[in-house]
Each structure stands twice: as structure tokens, then as C-alpha cells.
Design a protein around this nucleic acid. Sequence first.
DNA 1: CAAATATAATAGTATTACTATCAAATACTA
DNA 2: TAGTATTTGATAGTAATACTATTATATTTG
Lengths: 223, 223
Amino acid sequence: MKNLLSALKISVPDKIFIKDPETSELGKRIVENSIILINDIGFESFTFKKLGTRICSNESSIYRYFESKHKLLLYLSSWYWAWLEYQLVLETYSITDADEKLAKAVLIVTRMVKEDSNFTHINEVLLYKIIVNESSKSFLTKEVDIENKEGYFEVYKRIIARIGEMISAVNSDYPFALSLASTIIEGGLHQHYLKEHFPSISNYESGKTPTNFFVQLIKSTIK
Amino acid sequence: MKNLLSALKISVPDKIFIKDPETSELGKRIVENSIILINDIGFESFTFKKLGTRICSNESSIYRYFESKHKLLLYLSSWYWAWLEYQLVLETYSITDADEKLAKAVLIVTRMVKEDSNFTHINEVLLYKIIVNESSKSFLTKEVDIENKEGYFEVYKRIIARIGEMISAVNSDYPFALSLASTIIEGGLHQHYLKEHFPSISNYESGKTPTNFFVQLIKSTIK
DNA sequence: CAAATATAATAGTATTACTATCAAATACTA
DNA sequence: TAGTATTTGATAGTAATACTATTATATTTG
């Protein structure tokens, strides 16, 4: 299975970057190490200067790939959603039963992330942590409407639309398919966050994911 | 009803501020105008210098009330949650039926905010917009665990616990009362955000709130 | 009226988030 | 293989940010 998809490239809207980091060694090092560094010190403290030092390169070289650290965060977010979408398609493609398909989708979207050896320069486990902790900051800005028009969030919207369709396939009369889909996606991230930082308002034992919570929720809601 | 509660003061954890802004004219002007200015230009562009200019006061004077703009955001968030809690208590107190009480709570937490004349220096409608757009940034930081220990998020946690209890009152066997409560609270904010900025992945007609979506969701989930 | 407290004004600092320029290394092409 | 283009690196510079520190001036309170 692994090598079956080794030629695959995750596609990120190309307006997000100045130069595609996938096309060079330096670009890949930028992405790889930005994930590690953002995880380490948080997005607020993260700077291109620090990243430059870490990869023994120059601040100005990083600016040739990404206009700003905000754009880099958009890149990482889009990459994650595209990667998740590819898993979603791959793992639900052959399921014909609508209920089963949706349950599988919820599992994929709320489970603990494992490393994917198809993309060696990206640590998906760390990237997922960034998505949980930082990805909201990519759209909670004053520029969101402009950037939305530019297509920066299309992968994110597409995955929600896809899950929305799976919900409608189970019950075409349910009127809130998209709202429920986005609630699962964002709620999944948020529940992972709460589990880690606010366990007193959480209902998960250690090692458990919110998958069961969401599977039961979605089933009873659209039944 | 209005004047019945005019002596009420919303209580915010006092470690959040250096000097309580409620105790002086300048303090109230700081809070009042920070709400307007953050709404206007966004939290990232907001600075104490700009706020100082706006209120014809000095940057250094604002620093005597709040250590940083992050602390100010924590203050505004806590104020909002405390205000919401007071509404929750007030409006559900006399309801004895557990189902009805919970439905009312969901309504309060997901509805459109109206101005409250009890607190003249705070524009609750604008404050709610800040909560939708910026409040996640108050806890999505590297310092969250330290600040949580300091009690900065206690109001937020209390309101979730309260709704969790209402859920358990309806069905004491439901195992995810707190998770569901936090999903409603955060999901409510997020759905309001999507309605505004990503209508293509939203299911609400203009003027409509996500209340119906959540009332139906919660009812069927815990039934 | 004196003393304490609050506010204002000014200056200063390290860092950030860039932009601009130029040189050196590397790759590609005739 | 020389010539050209592209990429990267090094350095410098800038306006703004997020503060701290100091001193002066109001204002409140005892």
C-alpha cells in the first residue's frame, strides 16, 4: 500500500506560496523544520530568522518561498487538509453502505494521527499538533474574506463539503448536513485540545479519542 | 428587570488585571474603547499605543491596568463568559423541567447577543463579535497550562460545567456531558463565524442562528 | 494643607517583520 | 566549455511593536 502511492503529491493552492517548497531541497527543509519549530516554541514566537538559524540558511531565502509566517501557516494547514482528504477518499472509497461510510469518515477525522512514510519531510504527528493548536489562527484574521476569495481555504471547505455529502447520503432530509460536518471537523480538533489542556471539562480517559463521542452524536442526530 | 440588577458587577478573576478597570473612569474608557478598536482593526493590529491615542491617554497609563494586550483579551473573554453565566442562571432559574431548562440554555448560548443596558461602558454586541473572532487566541498559546493553573479560565470552565450538569439532569447515563457542553459552546461561536465568512459551508438562512441546529442535535444525542 | 496616588510625557531597548542590494554558488544551455 | 540564468547567502536598513524606566504633573484623600 505504501509504495503504491509514492508518486503522489499533496496539492496546495499555489497562491499560498511564492515558490513551491516541494521543488527544492531548501524548500523541503523549510517546511520540515517549520513544523518542528512551531511545535516547539508556538506560532507567536516563531520567526523566519529563528527558522533560518535552525536550517543553517538565511532569513531572506525563506522569504523567497513564503511571503510571511501567516502564509506558511496557511500552507501547513492546507497541506494537512489535503492529506486528510486523501486518506478520507482512500479509506472510504470501497465502502458502499452509507452509514458505514460516514462512521468511517468520522473515525478518520477524529482519530489520533499516525506518521505517513509517503511524505518523509513532513512529520504528520507534529503537524496534527499544529493544526490543533494553531490552525484557527490561519482564518481568524481581518483578511479572511480577501484570502477566502483568493482560494486559500478551498481544501478545507472541500473536505467539509465531502463529509456533508456523506451525511446527506444517509439522510437526505436532514437540513444541517454542512453545519454538522464542520462541527465534527472543528469539534474534533477542539476536543483533542481540551483533553490535553483542560481535562476537567473533558470526558475522555487517557489514550482515548473523541471518536466514540462523535460517532454516537452524528448517528443519533441524523437518524 | 433592568434596574433590579443595576448593582451587579461582573466578576473577573483578579489576577488577570494589575488594577481593576472597573474602579476608575480611565479603566472603563480603556475597556470600552478596546472593544471598539479590536473590533475595528483586529487583535493582531491592536496596540496599546493606538488605544492610548483613541482615548486621549497614554500608552504607559494603560500598562498600569493590563500587563499586555493578551491579558486584556483574557479580561474581555472572562467578562463575556461571566455575563453569559449570569444570563444563564437568571433565565433558567425558575424552570423546573430538565428538558426545557436545557433547551433554554442552548438558546441562550447560541442566540444573537443583544445589548445589556446594565453595563453602559460595554457594548455586548461588539464584545460578542470579539469572542467569535478572537477569543480562541486567548487560550491557543504556549502559556495555556501555566495560565490555567493561575485560574484565568475558571469562568469559562464553570459555564461548561454548568451546562454539563444540565445535560446530566436530562440523562444521567449519558457519558459525554462535558464534551457535549463544550461542543455546544465552541461550536456555537464557530457556526456564527462560518455563517459570516464561509457561507458556502453553512446551512443558515440570513438572520437565522444555529440555535435550531444545536437544540435538535442535543436532544437526539442524549435521548 | 500635606501626603499619597494616579496619570501623562518622554525616552529608551530589543525584537519583529519585513525590503533592498549585491555577491557567490550552482544549474542549465548553446 | 564558456556564458547565462537562477538560486542562495550575507549584510544592511527600516518602521513598528511591545514593552520598561524615569520624571513631572495632576488629582484624590486623610
